[in-house]
Each structure stands twice: as structure tokens, then as C-alpha cells.
Design a protein around this nucleic acid. Structure first.
Lengths: 183, 183
DNA sequence: GGCAAATGTATACAGTGACTACATAATGCT
DNA sequence: AGCATTATGTAGTCACTGTATACATTTGCC
């Protein structure tokens, strides 16, 4: 009889609220399904109708991160590698918790596809900058670039570079440009 | 009157047992203080005499990881960046859970010093490879190299490259060992 | 209109980190 | 040696978590 017995959009709402929670506290392991449900105003078990368990919620959120990153890169891939570094850096700085989630892809999960879309976009950006290399080399460069940027943001987000002087830390765009994967 | 009321070496034992637990299950958030205590045969609260909370235990373990990595690199730093990649990748492959811990440094924690020792060793390795560069560039290169290798192992350990690696390089997935940072 | 599927609620359980109060052993001072 | 202090253990408790099971309501389809 109640008007809002059914929420109507709980799945999407959970993902959004999880994202907010990660902004308040970037540690993904501190994220609680019950608290999200409470905050949304729904019973503590309702979320389980949409996600088999906690990990699947995190996976869905990480996928959103990759989708946004890919879209952001697509908009400005004219700029090449700089754009790759910039897009990832900005995301990692604004939402460190989200960035942390994006380091893991469960096989069969949503991240699997979304991260591939991101990688494709990186390949496109690299191609624009370095011109017509053979495709395999291109992909390897893209992976190297992604790894370099990811590594730099991981180091600084984790505080591993805290206290080091500014001049000691390489710019991630420069680094990304110099990293190459041998075959 | 019992013989073993005091364990005698509980702190070290906890770290060792935590490491084992991470080998059984690489997810650090699944690691339980109580279970470790149970396994050691000590009361569930005894560990708290040695670690103010769970995070400090993880920090201590991560520090051990950095110490070993630094020592391992010192033994073979003649080889330059490849040795860096090799040492890190081997560690990350054998103990992914430990590698995950090593992405975070609490200010004032043990990782802060240990990771600096590791970085110093990386600088040494890079210096051997590229010869006498000016110190600033050297440190930047070292950090960049660390980041690239870390990023690479994170990508493959996280499954983000699943399905791609064997496509790119028939037979072997040890991408990190093939990372090159150009000057 | 009625019935099945989707989506919500209520309740319960075992496990956790962490706190407090207390017990015992080890250490060091006199 | 004797004794007080400190280090290190135990016991018991609390609020909280993920998740399972059983039941209720709503929605959508024939």
C-alpha cells in the first residue's frame, strides 16, 4: 500500500551512492552495503536483489569509472598521450577510491568490457600521436602508457611519494611517452 | 603457571602468519586478526598488545615486503631496470596480496622508511644502467621506472589484461620484465 | 482479473575489529 | 631476596558487517 514500496531505480542508485561513499572515505573495504541501503532509505537486504554480493557492486562501480574515462578520453583524443595521462590523473585525484577499484577486473564482470573500451580509446590516442605503427606495437605502447600513468597515480595516491620534492616526481605524461613494452 | 602464558615472539609471529594468510587468500581486506590469533593459539586480543589496530599490522607486513624487495634488488642491481622489474614482478606474482599491501604508506608507518630504502636501491640500479646522469634526472628516472613496473604488474595481476597478453606475446605473460623506460 | 516474476521487508546467524576489566609473567630497583 | 612496575596475556562485551531464508508487496503480462 505504501507509495514507495518499490524504489524503482535501486541498482543505479546504489552505484551512485557507493561512489559518494568512496568520496567520503576512499577505502573500498570500508564501504558497507547496509549503510548505503540505510542512506537510500531501503531495507538492508534490498540491494541483494540487484547485486549477488558486495564484490559485484564494486565491479559495477569500477565499470562506470572506466566508461567515464573512455568517454572523457574520446572527447579529447586529439591531444594524444597527454590526454591519456590527464584524464586518468584527474580521475584518480578527484576520486581516489574509484581509482583503487579500477585496478581489478573480475573475469566475466562489467569491468572486463569497460576497461577494454578504455584501452581501445588509449590506442586511438596513441595512434594519433605516433602515427601509423604496426597494430601490435601500437597496443603494446598503449598498455605501457596506461601502466605508467596508473603506476604514477598509484604511488602518489598511496602516499609512497609523500615528502619527496616536487622535482623528483616525473610528470606522468612525460613518463607515459617514454614507456615501451618490448616484445 | 602455564608454561606458555606468554608467547614470547608474538609480534613477529603475527606478521609471518598474516603473510601466510595472504598467500592463502590474496585479498588483504579478508585478513582477520582473530583468525591469525586462533591459528597461533593465543587469545583473540593478544595481538592488540603489539599492534594498535589492524592497519598497523598490515603496515608492518608491507614494510617487510619492501625490505625484502630492496635486499633482493641489492643482490643483482647490476642489471638495471630489468632487475627492478624482475624483482618486483616476481614478488607480485608469488605474493599478490603482499604486493597489494605495498601500494599504501601510512605517514609515520614502517612502510615509509622501508619504501625509501627500496627507492634508493632502484636509484642505484638505474645509475648502473644509464651511467652518470645528474642526480635529479636519476631520481626522476628511478621513480618513473618504479611506477611503470608497478603499473604493469598491477594491470596483469588485476586481470585487466586477461586475454590480451597471450595475444600480444605468444607463450609468456611476463609483461613487466619487458618494460623499458626510454631516456 | 488473475497469476508469475520482480522487488521489496523481516529476521537470524556467524564472524569481525575494537574496547574494558582483569590475570599473569618478566623486569628492574632497592 | 623481595617487591612494585610494566609488558603481555585472557575473558567478556558491543556494535557492526555480509549474507541466507522466509515472507510481503508491487508490477507486468496473458
Amino acid at each position: 500500500m505504501r507509495k514507495n514500496y518499490h524504489h524503482g531505480d535501486l541498482r543505479r542508485r546504489m552505484v551512485a551512492e557507493a561512489r559518494l561513499a568512496l568520496v567520503r572515505n576512499p577505502d573500498p573495504s570500508a564501504l558497507s552495503i547496509r549503510e548505503l541501503a540505510r542512506r537510500i532509505g531501503v531495507s538492508q537486504n534490498a540491494p541483494y536483489r540487484h547485486f549477488p554480493d558486495r564484490d559485484h557492486l564494486l565491479d559495477a562501480l569500477a565499470a562506470v569509472g572506466y566508461e567515464e574515462a573512455a568517454a572523457g578520453l574520446a572527447e579529447r583524443s586529439v591531444e594524444g598521450i597527454t590526454a591519456v595521462a590527464d584524464v586518468w590523473d584527474t580521475m584518480a585525484r578527484r576520486e581516489p577510491g574509484l581509482a583503487a577499484l579500477m585496478q581489478r577486473s573480475v573475469p566475466g564482470g562489467e569491468v572486463e568490457l569497460a576497461s577494454r573500451a578504455w584501452l581501445a580509446e588509449v590506442v586511438r590516442a596513441i595512434e594519433l600521436e605516433v602515427g601509423g605503427e604496426d597494430p601490435e606495437r601500437l597496443v603494446r605502447r598503449a598498455i605501457g602508457c596506461w601502466a605508467a600513468v596508473l603506476g604514477m597515480t598509484t604511488l602518489s595516491r598511496g602516499g609512497l611519494l609523500a615528502g619527496l620534492d616536487e622535482w623528483m616526481v616525473p610528470g606522468s605524461a612525460d613518463l607515459a611517452r617514454r614507456v615501451v613494452v618490448r616484445r
